Computed example of a mutant assay.
Amino acid sequence: MVNPTVSVVIITYARPHFVGECLRHLAALRTAPHEVLVVDASPDPRTRTLVSEDFPDVRYLRNDLGPGTMPESRQIGLVNATGDVVAFIDDDAYVDPDWLDELVRPYADPSVGGVGGRASNGIDGEESRGLDLIGRFLPDGRLTGYFGADPGRSIDVDHLLGANMSFRRSTLLALGGIRGNYPGTCLCEESDISLRVRQSGHRLVFMPTAVVRHVAAPYQTGGQRFDRRYLYYARRNHVVLLARVFGFRAPVLRRYVLTALREQRDYLRTTYRLVRGRPDHEGVVPSRRRRLTAPVVLTRSLAEIIGLGAGFPAALVARRRDRAEGVSTP
């Protein structure tokens, strides 16, 4: 594909300030996209007003399903996009001026179905951390990140980061579009897209020169990053992901559950250390209050175990919905 047209889709919920900054960075690109679409699930009109008054060339689309429906917002963007490539960025991801030029370069190879870029989080050393683990799908079903790393060249990966990813529109449409039922924190929804594109025989490429600055805006849908709600949905949605993409009988699903259960030992070790008053790896001795409240740590393990169990009936419902909508399931 020579010089593909690109539709940029921004999904958002109740963060108009970040949408405005995101759109200002897109307007400063060296090469303008074919179109920009904002898909808004907010409960108020602030984002609609911002787009209509300050960015009249941007297409505003509405997702009336509300919070926790990021994949549904992506699907709305996909079905309304007209470019050869659909690029998804988060509202708190601000593109570099040459982001679009770098993102589309790998599409010259017809075997490439998706391209993702680097998300710089402003963390010291992130560019060299996890260089051999960027976007990997491990044999035990876990997914690695490290999308802030810079390997110095483009590399093939197994999945992409939702804050900075793109796909051929025709490829996504051929797969039946973007699937929902990844609620809560919407974890794994971008991995569902990526793994399905890989299963269809296409390559996924990580292009470290296609950079966005990810400022990690506050959640507006309840909870905080890595709280118990997050842990619950991380496990629940991961089970749904594996069951939908590979099937209930897939060995990788069993391996993931066993790995997740083994990982609960870390909570037990932490609780034991705190109760005994032993120092952590940095030599810090827990306070008396911390020792008394140590059992609270186990509620994080409980959230994960409940999430694992909830993933199976949720996956059954999701697979039935997929079949009803004509999306093939293993």
Rank of each mutant, 00 (worst) to 15 (best):
Val275Tyr: 01
Arg203Ile: 08
Gly247Ile: 04
Arg229Lys: 07
Tyr182Leu: 13
Val211Tyr: 00
Arg249His: 04
Gly277Cys: 08
Phe246Leu: 10
Tyr182Ala: 05
Val205Cys: 13
Arg229Asn: 13
Arg225Trp: 07
Gly184Cys: 10
Leu175His: 02
Arg265Val: 12
Gln199Ser: 12
Arg273Cys: 10
Val215Asp: 07
Asn237Ile: 04
Arg179Ile: 15
His214Cys: 04
Pro251Tyr: 08
Arg203His: 13
Gly184His: 14
Thr209Asp: 15
Phe248Arg: 14
His214Tyr: 11
Tyr233Cys: 04
Glu263Thr: 05
Gln224Met: 03
Val212Ser: 01
Thr259Pro: 00
Thr271Lys: 04
Ala243Asn: 07
Val212Thr: 12
Ala243Arg: 12
Tyr232Phe: 14
Leu274Tyr: 14
Leu195Asp: 04
Gln220Pro: 00
Thr209Leu: 01
Ile178Pro: 12
Phe226Met: 07
Ala174Met: 02
Arg225Lys: 05
Leu258Val: 11
Thr270Tyr: 08
Phe246Trp: 08
Asn237Val: 05
Ala250Ile: 01
Val215Cys: 09
Tyr267Phe: 14
Leu258Gly: 02
Leu173Ser: 05
Gln264Lys: 10
Leu274Gln: 08
Gln224Thr: 10
Ala210Asn: 12
Ala234Asp: 14
Asp266Pro: 00
Thr171Ile: 13
Val212Asn: 01
Tyr267Val: 06
Arg254Asn: 13
Glu263Ile: 02
Val275Phe: 11
Asp266Ile: 03
Val211Arg: 10
Ala250Gln: 03
Pro208Leu: 01
Tyr267Trp: 14
Gly201Leu: 02
Arg269Asn: 07
Phe246Tyr: 15
Pro218Asn: 05
Val252Lys: 09
Val252His: 04
Ile193Ser: 01
Pro183Arg: 15
Tyr267Ser: 05
Gly223Phe: 13
Ala234Trp: 09
Pro218Arg: 03
Asp192Leu: 02
Val257Tyr: 07
Val205Lys: 14
Thr271Leu: 10
Gly176Arg: 09
Leu274Asp: 12
Tyr232Trp: 15
Val205Ile: 06
Thr171Gly: 00
Gly277Glu: 05
Asn181Gln: 11
Ala250Ser: 14
Pro183Ala: 10
Ala243Ser: 09
Leu268Asp: 09
Leu173Asn: 04
Gly176Glu: 09
Arg265Phe: 11
Arg244Pro: 01
Phe206His: 06
Cys186Asn: 13
Leu242Glu: 06
Arg213Ala: 10
Gly201Gln: 13
Arg236His: 09
Ile178Gln: 00
Gln264His: 05
Ser194Phe: 10
Leu187Thr: 02
Gly223Arg: 03
Arg269Val: 09
Gly177Ile: 11
Glu190Arg: 00
Ala210Val: 06
Val197Pro: 08
Cys186Leu: 03
Tyr230Phe: 15
Gly277Ser: 10
Gln199Gly: 02
Gln264Trp: 05
Tyr219Glu: 11
Thr271Glu: 13
Asn181Thr: 00
Gln220Tyr: 00
Leu253Phe: 09
Arg244Val: 02
Leu253Lys: 06
His214Ile: 06
Pro218Tyr: 04
His214Pro: 09
Tyr256Asp: 04
Tyr230His: 10
Gly180Met: 09
Ala174Ile: 03
Val240Gly: 03
Leu242Asn: 02
Arg196Cys: 12
Ile178Thr: 08
Glu190Gly: 01
Leu204Ala: 06
Arg262Ser: 14
Gln224Val: 11
Ser200Val: 13
Arg179Cys: 07
Arg228Trp: 00
Phe248Ala: 13
Leu253Ser: 05
